[in-house]
């Protein structure tokens, strides 16, 4: 099994500064600033409606922020289209799985590489040597680097619609990895999973960080996992960043406890979180 050699995918540095977004009179995001440092896992948490998904959509290019900048390795990408961001090394998964249901697992993963391929229409129609060579290189690379890595070789020719929820989430991660990302954005990677699936996914996310060496930004509600695997946590509430820092520091922040519980007692938050963890 070969993985990309260290350094081939240089991890990206994402800097979001002063980002504001509004829908009519509703302020979804107000002056949001944070960083994802190269090669780290940054988690974005907050109660429902805090603006996490809006922020994700700004970074991936679906929403145009009213103010502020999004920089990838110092390059301003605030106003570029989603395909250009994909080429710059941004890949994401969706909260509600956004795979292509009519295609097999293998074709879904191959689609991730689309922006990096060169075959034009004429070559495609004739399946000429250049087109064939490119397809075969892609197949070999996908098999070696991604299918083996994520342990999905037994389902590669299955239609996506026939897979379990947990496997579909894994295929979506595989497709994002096929994009050769330098910043991987995961929108609730373990939502709706049972404990075993959650642990598998957490292990894969850590493996991606360690072996691929790329930067990861994730939105997640599962506090246990967030506190376990992230290097940096950003807490949003009502569209504003109310706290950020290492997991331990954020856990003890009275403002965070207030956002989740309505009272400023961190000990109470910890007690409730561990109760949820035991129940699950």
């Amino acid at each position: 099994m070969t993985r990309p050699a260290p350094g081939t995918l240089a991890p990206a540095h994402l800097a979001v500064s002063g980002l504001s977004l509004s829908f009519g009179g509703l302020k979804a995001l107000t002056d949001v600033s944070f960083e994802v440092r190269p090669g780290t896992i940054t988690a974005l948490i907050g109660p429902n409606g805090a603006g996490k998904t809006s922020l994700f959509n700004c970074i991936s290019g679906f929403y145009r922020p009213r103010e502020g900048h999004i920089r990838l390795d110092g390059q301003d990408i605030t106003h570029t289209h989603p395909p250009a961001r994909a080429r710059a090394g941004l890949a994401r998964t969706f909260q509600n799985i956004a795979l292509f249901k009519g295609m097999t697992v293998l074709d879904n993963i191959k689609l991730g590489r689309h922006a990096h391929m060169r075959t034009n229409l004429l070559q495609a129609l004739a399946y000429w040597s250049a087109a064939r060579r490119e397809e075969m290189e892609l197949r070999a690379e996908v098999e070696r680097q991604i299918i083996d890595f994520l342990e999905i070789d037994h389902i590669r020719n299955k239609p996506v619609a026939s897979l379990s929820y947990g496997l579909q989430k894994r295929v979506e991660l595989a497709r994002a990895l096929a994009m050769r990302p330098r910043l991987l954005m995961l929108d609730e990677p373990v939502a709706g999973m049972n404990r075993e699936e959650t642990e598998d996914m957490a292990r894969f996310i850590l493996d991606v960080k360690e072996e691929w060496g790329i930067s990861i930004l994730m939105v997640e509600h599962d506090m246990g996992m967030v506190m376990d695997i992230s290097d940096h946590v950003v807490v949003l509430n009502f569209g504003k960043v109310i706290a950020q820092g290492p997991p331990a520091q954020v856990q003890g922040d009275p403002q965070v406890a207030a956002a989740y519980l309505g009272s400023g007692n961190p000990a109470e938050l910890m007690r409730r979180l561990s109760a949820i963890g035991e129940a699950a």
């Binding site: 009519g102 689609l111 689309h114 922006a115 994009m179």
Partner: peptide, 11 residues
């Protein structure tokens, strides 16, 4: 199948 995620993939 899903034009929004197609766009995110760089299509």
């Amino acid at each position: 199948d899903r034009d929004i995620s197609a766009e995110v993939l760089g299509i």
